[in-house]
């Protein structure tokens, strides 16, 4: 081989891991995205309707957002794991 000229170099087929991870994370983010939008929208509605209970609604909203967000974040971690 050392005497022969190199005709072509073809790189190893592309590694699809990162692409799969990206698609996976994108899919994992759909549900939580809708969910967080719904939570915050409803909270704003509640706060507008009863401004005196805004503090309580805000706390509950953060809790709900945290729980929902966790799903998206697990997707993010899984994406890092599989890539």
């Amino acid at each position: 081989m050392e005497a022969l000229s190199i005709l072509a170099q073809v790189a190893e087929p592309a590694d699809f891991g990162p692409i799969g991870a990206g698609i996976g994370y994108g899919l994992a983010a759909i549900g939580p995205g809708i969910g967080i939008g719904y939570i915050v929208g409803k909270s704003v509605e509640a706060m507008a309707r009863q401004p005196e209970s805004a503090g309580m609604v805000r706390t509950t909203m953060f809790l709900g957002v945290a729980f929902t967000e966790a799903i998206a974040l697990i997707g993010f971690v899984v994406a890092m794991l599989v890539q």
Partner: peptide, 18 residues
């Protein structure tokens, strides 16, 4: 990373991964 090296051998083309 592997690179496929294609060379012309006696019987045609040889493919080696280095």
């Amino acid at each position: 990373m592997l690179t496929a090296v294609v060379t012309r051998g006696a019987t045609g083309f040889d493919v080696a991964f280095v």
